[in-house]
């Protein structure tokens, strides 16, 4: 849907820029969307991004740095019981583990596809750290000039297994694999 509003930038193919660029998070407009099977249906919802440190090197993607922290207590699912179950002690245990963090360890530009990259990193949920791989795509606002990097949207997808983190509550009713679609909006720091 938002692919329609944002045009793909061929950022990685853009002309050389000397230093990596430092970005600040637009927390208001960023969110981590999730989906998890629930019987014949799905539980969906979103978790706000609390903070992020993002440095992007458009020439050498590997030099980029990304670390993100999520606000577990403010996560919301599509119905109240699911929100309570998810943030409660048997799943994310927000009281004891108020944040989920992600730190990228390796960012690999996907050759020939422009603004796409594969980002490997460590995600910490419930205090348990596990590797995860996210597919990332960078977009610039619709109507902005090619090569414009002031404001960007980073769209990431991936999945985690609840059981890897001990977030196993209601595993008889709710699926193990949580699919993530993450939208982070960032502005170039002054």
């Amino acid at each position: 849907m938002f692919r329609a509003i944002l045009a793909l930038v061929l950022i990685l193919a853009a002309p050389a820029v000397a230093a990596p660029l430092v970005y600040t998070l637009d927390a208001e407009d960023s969110r981590v969307g999730f989906k998890v099977p629930f019987g014949p249906d799905q539980i969906t919802g979103a978790m706000p991004v609390r903070s992020a440190e993002i440095t992007l090197d458009f020439e050498r993607a590997a030099r980029s740095k990304v670390s993100v922290s999520l606000d577990v207590a403010r996560a919301r699912a599509n119905f109240p019981f699911a929100t309570q179950a998810m943030t409660g002690p048997k799943v994310l245990d927000a009281a004891n583990h108020p944040t989920i963090t992600f730190v990228a360890t390796e960012i690999i530009a996907i050759q020939g596809v422009g603004a796409k990259a594969r980002m490997a990193g460590d995600i910490t949920i419930r205090g348990v750290t596990r590797p995860v791989v996210l597919d990332a795509e960078v977009f610039r606002p619709q109507g902005s000039a090619e090569g414009e990097r002031g404001r960007l949207s980073v769209y990431m997808t991936g999945a985690v297994a609840r059981s890897d983190f001990g977030a196993t509550g209601w595993s008889d009713l709710v699926g193990d694999e949580v699919t993530l679609d993450i939208l982070v909006r960032i502005d170039l720091a002054e």
Binding site: F38, G39, D41, F79, L173
Partner: peptide, 8 residues
């Protein structure tokens, strides 16, 4: 039953 949105 298989629990879902419709029968919760």
């Amino acid at each position: 039953m298989e629990v879902g949105m419709s029968n919760l």
